[in-house]
């Protein structure tokens, strides 16, 4: 396992795109609290509902809320982390290296595990960055910093980790199918931002909202549900749904299986 990880890390650490994209990703994560702070302040000053409550500041970064609020926003940037997977896998194709690695003595399964291990490791690092940001924001703005209060709903952090792993596995499978980085990136944007939302809203319109939960990007994303309704006094899911977790784990298994199948059954042209 260490050997596979070291092979994959050797490939990444010598590639500029890896440092640029992971740097960009961390910068984006760190910029969120700042941007959110500005927006929250504006909303707090203007929103009527806040006025009705007597002009209170939204407890956006307060403990308990901070975990779900921030990880939910962090999710929007997952696609940038996904690009690392897309470029890493598509360049193996374009340089004939998938083939060459196998010729040199890596098994096809080992090739897949080297990618999956790197996805897991990268997700873990980014999750730790997310955890640190959440803690920093929480300790800065939260009026209560009692340990049991701080760690309540910290489960959104491991949930964010699973989300990152699943999303990158999704990118891995799409790249294995399409092979070319440019087309894959365009296809991912198109699918994530347009196609799936359209299918999902059509399904809801047809009364099949439950089915829409099983669409891949929804399934990968739903583990951290939209948290902000609670500030408008509407019913909000503030925990991790067991069904959401089940679907996500199902997808992680399915995507790994599909990637394994593609890699072991297909000619490595």
């Amino acid at each position: 396992m260490r050997r596979l990880l070291s092979i994959e890390f050797f490939k990444l650490k010598n590639s500029r795109y890896f440092w640029i994209l992971s740097g960009l990703f961390i910068v984006l994560l760190m910029s969120i609290p700042y941007t959110a702070r500005v927006i929250v302040n504006k909303v707090s000053q203007q929103a009527e509902i806040i006025d009705a409550l007597g002009g209170l500041t939204l407890p956006f970064f307060d403990f308990v809320d901070v975990w779900q609020n921030l990880t939910f926003i962090f999710k929007f940037f997952s696609i940038f982390l996904g690009f690392i997977t897309v470029i890493s896998v598509s360049s193996e194709y374009s340089y004939g290296m998938m083939k060459q690695n196998v010729i040199d003595g890596l098994s096809r399964a080992e090739f897949l595990w080297s990618k999956v291990l790197m996805i897991t490791a990268l997700s873990l690092v980014m999750t730790i960055v997310a955890l640190l940001i959440c803690l920093y924001m929480g300790y800065t703005y939260s009026p209560v910093t009692d340990w049991t209060f701080v760690t309540a709903h910290i489960e959104f952090i491991p949930a964010y980790f699973l989300h990152l792993v699943a999303f990158q596995l999704f990118c891995l499978v799409v790249t294995l199918v399409i092979k070319r980085s440019g087309i894959t990136i365009a296809a991912l944007f198109f699918y994530v931002l347009m196609i799936e939302p359209m299918i999902a809203s059509y399904m809801s319109y047809q009364g099949l909202a439950l089915l829409a939960e099983f669409l891949p990007v929804n399934a990968i994303s739903n583990i951290i549900r939209f948290p902000f309704y609670k500030y408008a006094m509407r019913e909000t899911q503030t925990t991790i749904g067991m069904m959401d977790l089940g679907i996500l784990m199902g997808y992680i298994g399915l995507l790994t299986y599909v990637a394994h199948r593609i890699l072991t059954k297909r000619d490595l042209a």
Binding site: N14, R16, S91, Y95, M97, K99
Partner: peptide, 8 residues
Amino acid sequence: KPNFYPKF
């Protein structure tokens, strides 16, 4: 053909 990472 010889396969290598071009930038390495």
